[in-house]
């Protein structure tokens, strides 16, 4: 089903905080329909790379080609237009706490569509149904559990039927069963909508269960040292660092 058309391409990306270079010479390609995993040890810059991909942090050098367009060469308005086809699920869910779940999901619909209030209500209900939160429309984020917040965040990320959804550590803080359910949900969305998924995670179970492509960011060399299907990387690890990571340190020492 993946037609192997590049969706996002990173070319020689350099990410820095002032003088401190976090990552350099990052080259990777995310194809349409991929479930692309950004993996690496703690503090290697996974979440910062995600910020570059979603337009929250400019790279210090290099190019990010998003749907054939140079993402960071345009204005903020240009990036906003590109990002309208993207949804993001933040680590904490990042639901707006002063709004109900329905209002959270309705906001992008009110902003970017011409749907009537009744139509928006229907779409909101559908999105909540899809993530297993039917009936929770009028709940506030503070009234639901961590796993439910993640799912509600996903419903909001899917509000505008995006081409691509970014996830920042979706399984963090979830019990194994909830994490598995979320993985199944992500897989289901990708299968049904052919959505490209980009996910930052170091949960090996999730990586092998759903990942189809990946990049490994190395904290020592500060660059990507592996690229490809995580299951293939496990079978034929390109280096000991990646082998150690993918086997939880059982091999590659």
């Amino acid at each position: 089903m993946a037609d192997k058309q590049p969706h996002i391409t990173g070319k020689g990306l350099k990410i820095a905080y002032g003088d401190f270079v976090l990552m350099r010479d990052l080259d990777f390609t995310i194809n349409r329909g991929d479930i692309f995993i950004i993996m690496g040890g703690s503090g290697c810059g996974k979440s910062t790379l995600l910020k570059v991909l979603v337009g929250l942090k400019a790279p210090a050098a290099g190019k990010l080609i998003f749907d054939g367009r140079d993402f960071w060469a345009g204005t903020r308005e240009d990036r906003d237009i590109i990002m309208r086809k993207a949804g993001i699920l933040y680590q904490s869910g990042a639901l707006w706490t002063s709004m109900t779940l329905a209002e959270n999901i309705a906001l992008p619909l009110e902003q970017y569509t011409n749907l009537t209030a009744a139509e928006i209500r229907d779409v909101v209900s559908l999105k909540l149904d899809l993530v297993g939160l039917a009936g929770f429309e009028d709940f506030y984020p503070s009234e639901i559990s961590g796993g439910m917040k993640k799912r509600a965040g996903l419903a909001r990320a899917l509000a505008l039927d995006p081409d691509i959804v970014f996830f920042d550590e979706p399984s963090a803080g979830l019990d194994p069963v909830s994490a598995r359910l979320l993985d199944d949900l992500i897989l289901e969305i990708r299968e049904s909508l052919n959505t490209t998924i980009v996910m930052v995670t170091h949960e090996l179970a999730s990586i092998f269960a759903i990942g189809t492509n990946s990049v490994y960011l190395d904290v020592e060399t500060r660059t990507a040292i592996a690229h490809g299907d995580p299951k293939e990387l496990l079978k034929n690890p390109p280096n000991k660092t990646v082998e150690r990571f993918l086997t939880r340190g059982e091999k590659g020492n």
Partner: peptide, 17 residues
């Protein structure tokens, strides 16, 4: 400030709001 910590401000910005 709390919204900044909870990434709620990022969520608005990335949505183009």
């Amino acid at each position: 400030g709390s919204m900044q910590v909870n990434e709620e401000v990022d969520a608005l910005e990335t949505m183009g709001i």
